[in-house]
Structures are given as C-alpha cells and as structure tokens.
C-alpha cells in the first residue's frame, strides 16, 4: 500500500525534525572535522588554517595518552564486572525466592538515580575519615585509604561507582532474557539428570549470548559517554589518574578555552565510536546462531 509521499506532506512530516537533527548532529560533527584544521582565533588575529598541526599535537600529547589508557582500563574493568554481577542479580531475582522485591529494589535503585546524585553519595562514602568505606577499614584495623585522592586508587574507585550505577540496568535486560528461556529445555535436561550448574552453563548461558552482546556494546559506548561522576568526584585528578576522554574534551574546551583542540579531540571520539559501531555491526551479524 506504500504510497508516494507528496511533497507538501513530506515537508510537514520531515522538515523540522530533520533540520533539528542535522543542525545538532551532522553539522557539528562536520564542523568539528573542519575546525580541527584551524587554530583558535583571538581578539587580535582571526583563526587561520594550520593543516594537521592539531593532530600532531594530539599524537604528542602525553596527557591524552594517559587518558586513553585510563579509558581503556575503565571499559575493560567495568564492563565484565557489571555484566557478571547483572547475571547473578537476574538469576537471584528470577528464582522466586523470599525477599525478591527487596532485592530488585536494591539492585535497580542506583539506575534510577541521576549520575550526579550517585557521585555525591559515593563522594561521601569514600570521604576520608567520615565515609563508610574508611570506617569499615577501621573496624578491621586496616589503615585508611584516600580512595579518590591518590593516583593508585582513584580510577578503580570511579569504576566501582560506574558498576554500581549500571549493573541494575543490565540486570533488567537479563531478567527479560531469562524469562524467555523455554522451561521445557530445562525440564528435559533435568530428566537427563543434569545438575543446576550444568543447566546454567550449558543451556541458560548460551541462550543469554545475544543479550550479553547487546549489553556489552551499550556498556562500551556508555563507558565513553558518561563522565558526570568524574566531573563531580575527582575532576580527573589527582594527576590525571581518573580522567576519561569525554572529560578531557570538556576540560580542554571549557576550562582552557581551547576550542580548536577540543574539536580535534571530538573528531577522535567520533572516529572511536565509529570503529566501535563497526565492530558491533560485525559481531551482531555473526550472532544469529541462537535465534
């Protein structure tokens, strides 16, 4: 029945949304690319074309190297931990145990909170002396740790915050997937004398694979996109030990007012996400196996 779209109707249906989308997604991406070849203007001189100079700066930027390492560690640390915990939580909530609604509430609550509230809660939790973390250490007679204030622990402390915030959301996806696992498959395995552990590893876990891929990809993109807690808790410090790429873009552009370098970093970010999307596409196309 698909009719041809008359021009007038097309304008009404598509013009405004596409204009907005173009103005705030495609145009800025293009402008970032363009501006990355120019330097900053000042009141005395206009900006001029500098070719790949900004990209040379980028390659020699030691801070950026550290930040890319941080971002990678952050992604590699948070994603598997959050996924593992999410599967565990989903199994617990799905098992019809006494106290299920309390568990679901507790696991899902952090997901509902704004990242900024989560950051405040954890800032207090980690606070030296007064925070619960150092009090618990005190009970066991351990020396206090300055979680956010030392270069060894700041990134790991941020990772815990991210896992706490995200695992509950991933749990929901796994809960949906678990409810779609056919009972008769498990019954058949049980009749054959399979243990609960074997049923989990040989039947349930393979069926959760598409969910895991979906969650992992989203978590990966989020790991690059979510920096609210870095801004509030550490400002990337101490000594850049907890800075992530988007935070660096924010700082370069809006604290140092270096818009040209900010644009160059934006290009890097978009390319990075493009590569991740390509990998996602490739992986998802291969997963058809179980569906």
């Amino acid at each position: 029945m698909n009719k041809r779209l008359p021009f007038g109707l097309a304008m009404v249906l598509l013009f405004i949304p596409c204009l907005l989308l173009g103005a705030f997604t495609h145009y800025p991406a293009f402008r970032a690319l363009q501006n990355s070849f120019w330097n900053n203007s000042s009141s005395r001189r206009p900006s001029k074309f500098v070719g790949v100079e900004n990209y040379q700066t980028l390659l020699q930027d030691d801070r950026l190297a550290q930040i890319m390492l941080n971002s990678t560690l952050y992604a590699l640390g948070t994603i598997p931990l959050a996924i593992g915990l999410a599967i565990g939580m989903a199994l617990l909530v799905n098992a019809r145990l006494p106290g299920t609604s309390l568990m679901r509430l507790s696991f899902f609550m952090p997901t509902m909170l704004p990242m900024i509230a989560v950051a405040n809660i954890w800032l207090f939790f980690y606070a030296p002396g007064i925070g619960l973390a150092s009090q618990i250490l005190g009970v066991f007679g351990l020396p206090p740790i300055n979680f956010l204030g030392s270069t060894e622990t700041s990134l790991i402390s941020m990772m815990f915050v991210a896992v706490w915030k995200e695992a509950g959301l991933f749990m929901i996806f796994y809960l949906a997937a678990l409810q779609a696992v056919p009972e008769n498959l498990k019954d058949a395995a049980r009749l054959e004398g399979a243990s609960a552990t074997r049923i989990f590893f040989n039947i349930v876990l393979p069926l959760l694979r598409p969910t895991t891929i979906f969650v992992a990809v989203n978590a990966l993109i989020n790991a690059f996109r979510l920096v609210d807690h870095v801004i509030v808790m550490t400002r990337g410090g101490p000594n850049n030990s907890s800075a992530l790429l988007l935070y660096y873009i924010y700082e370069v552009t809006f604290s140092q007012r270096d818009f040209a370098y900010g644009a160059t970093l934006t290009v890097l970010m978009v390319c990075l996400l493009g590569v991740l999307a390509a990998v996602q596409y490739w992986v998802l196309n291969r997963k058809a196996h179980y569906q």
């Binding site: 705030f24 997604t25 991406a29 996109r225 924010y250 970010m269 996400l273």
Partner: peptide
C-alpha cells in the same frame, strides 16, 4: 542518516553545539 544520532549523541558534540 537519522540513526547516526544513536551513536554520535549530543553529549559527544558539546564543543560544536556550544558554538552553534
């Protein structure tokens, strides 16, 4: 083209969107 926004979301483009 529209689906590009799923990946390149406004959070990433803060620099240029601020200038706009």
């Amino acid at each position: 083209l529209i689906m590009v926004q799923l990946l390149v979301s406004p959070e990433i483009l803060i620099v240029e969107n601020y200038l706009t």
